[in-house]
Design a protein around this nucleic acid. Sequence first.
DNA 1: TATTGTTATACTCTATAACTATA
DNA 2: TATAGTTATAGAGTATAACAATA
Lengths: 170, 170
Amino acid sequence: MANANPSRTQRPSRRASSSAPSLPVVSAVEQVDTSYLQTLLGYNARRAALTIIEGFLERMAEFGLRPVDFSVMSVIQHNPGVTSRQLCAALNLLPPNLVGLIQSLETRGLIHRLPHPTDGRAVGLHPTPEGAALMQKAEQAATDLEEARSARLTAAQRKTLLELLQKIYL
Amino acid sequence: MANANPSRTQRPSRRASSSAPSLPVVSAVEQVDTSYLQTLLGYNARRAALTIIEGFLERMAEFGLRPVDFSVMSVIQHNPGVTSRQLCAALNLLPPNLVGLIQSLETRGLIHRLPHPTDGRAVGLHPTPEGAALMQKAEQAATDLEEARSARLTAAQRKTLLELLQKIYL
DNA sequence: TATTGTTATACTCTATAACTATA
DNA sequence: TATAGTTATAGAGTATAACAATA
């Protein structure tokens, strides 16, 4: 695939005495062509993810939850007693980056940490009533946001998109 | 959607004399349930993007190009004379973050900066022969990587995925 | 010996405000 | 007055190495 954007703005640049007029050294671009990048899954997935997350950030500010906070709280909500290690494996996070996040959630009273029933090294993470109530609202808001975000997709297209994305990372 | 993961490891915890045995306070999670998160476009798009980019980083290390470097060079390659401002708009980057990147590409001899033909404030970015040659190889490698990455997708599914992602961010 | 959770730390990425030169 | 490019800087996100406690 060669340069697919031949439309340039060119100054008249009347050169003096040239039977075969040489091309101008400099040229300007009228419309930027990104058609090559648009053939790449990585580029499109990244752009789409960032666009969605942008709206997510605004909507979730009310709950004080950034994307990773949200996903961590959601997993704890649906898996009370889950350990940090399990969270890392499920969400592809690194343990050191989870420590401060967990502490913050505990300080806010959204979760509490209880000893693991069988493994003395591990700690089970449980939602507090406040945390559970917050997540019920937050997940509803996230689901509402999904519908707004995918307004340009049919329900079937949205389902297809989810399935195809999961084929990539699962 | 309530808790869809009832499978817990529970210690027998034989309580003393209780006709209605109370549930254990602590419980462990056997398998982490992420089914709610998997209904969200943002979560899936982000996970997929990060998975793809992980492979991209490894493959492109040979060319010394990170994802943003690659996309910037690709746009310059296909749009010689493009300005920083146009790059920012096309790739959703912020001007201050592009400055160091452009300088680095110029220092490496991959691009050169020429005065804009009509706007004295702007600078046109052009690939050097070395930059153009590098990008020809890098884009071929990226395209090869795409095929490997989407091995679990049919050609039609891959096309569908690209189109649906573009409906999200374009 | 391997694993869970933690600390310290470094590096990258992204975002904001303010300045200059030109349109 | 508005725009292109730049500088300085702050903040968030992500990465590795090493340690204590427990399996």
